[in-house]
Amino acid sequence: MTVTDNEIVIAAPMDLVWEMTNDVASWPELFSEYSAAEILERDGDTVRFRLTLHPDENGQVWSWVSERTPDPVTRTVRARRIETGPFEYMNLFWEYAEADGGVRMRWRQEFTVRPELPFGDEAMADRLNTNTRREMARIKQLVEAAAQQPAGAR
C-alpha cells in the first residue's frame, strides 16, 4: 500500500469549505482536471458518481465511478473508487479541521497500482501529489473568493 497525504489551509468559514468541496455535481467548476461529474445514485449520505477528465495529451478521455460518504458531524469523508482503473484499489479520506485563519483540508489517498502496468506506486504517488497540490491551490483560491461574496451572491 502507498499513501499520499496533502493538506492546505483555506481562509474561509468551515460551512462554506465543507459545502463547496462536497458538492460533487459542481466539481467540474471547482477542479481543473474534471470535465464532468455525473451523480449516479444517492443512498443516505453516500453518493455514487462518475468523474470524467479532460482529454490528456494523447486525446484519451479517462473516466471512473467512485463512491463517497461525507460525515458532517466529524467533518470527514470516506471515499473509494468503484471502477479502479490503474489501481488494484484506491481509498480516500478527507478531513477538515478548524485552523488559524480558516480550515485545514487534508486529503489522504491509499492505493496500490496494478502490477502489470509500466509504472509503479512511486510514480503514481508523484503524479497524485502533483495533481492534488495543484487542485488544492485552485480550490483554496475559489473558496476564498466565494467567502468574500455576500451570502446571497454565492
Rank of each mutant, 00 (worst) to 15 (best):
P28G: 07
R68H: 11
P86F: 03
F93M: 04
E19Y: 04
A99E: 04
T21V: 04
R138Y: 07
N22G: 09
H54Y: 13
N129C: 09
T69R: 15
V143H: 03
E95F: 00
D71N: 15
Q149V: 08
F87K: 04
M124S: 07
E33N: 13
V24I: 15
V3D: 01
E88Y: 00
D5P: 02
E41D: 14
N6V: 08
E116L: 03
F49R: 13
T76I: 09
N131T: 12
R42Y: 03
W62V: 09
S63D: 09
R134N: 10
A37D: 07
D121Q: 06
E38I: 05
V143F: 03
V61R: 12
Y96K: 06
R114V: 05
L51N: 09
S63M: 09
F111N: 04
D126W: 03
T112F: 00
D100Q: 12
R133L: 13
M14F: 11
E67S: 15
P118G: 01
D100W: 00
G101K: 11
L142C: 11
E135F: 01
V73Y: 05
S35T: 09
A123V: 06
S35K: 13
V103Q: 07
F49W: 06
G44N: 08
V9N: 00
M20N: 08
L40M: 12
I8K: 06
R108N: 00
L40E: 14
L142M: 14
E116Q: 13
A125P: 08
L142V: 12
W62E: 14
V103H: 06
L117Y: 02
A151K: 14
R42P: 08
V3S: 08
Q109V: 10
R75H: 15
R114C: 06
I82A: 03
A97D: 10
G59S: 08
I82C: 03
P115R: 08
R127D: 09
R154D: 01
R138T: 13
T52Y: 05
N22E: 09
W27T: 02
R48L: 11
M90L: 14
Q149I: 06
R68F: 01
R68S: 15
R134L: 10
W62G: 12
F119A: 01
T2N: 08
V3F: 00
D5F: 02
P13D: 15
E83Q: 14
R108S: 02
G44P: 11
M1E: 06
V65N: 10
L128A: 03
N131D: 13
T76Y: 10
R133G: 07
I39K: 09
M136S: 04
T130C: 02
G102D: 08
I10T: 06
A123T: 10
T84N: 14
P28F: 05
T69A: 12
E135G: 04
L117N: 13
Q148H: 13
L128V: 11
E95W: 00
M1K: 05
M136I: 00
P28Y: 05
P115S: 11
T112N: 12
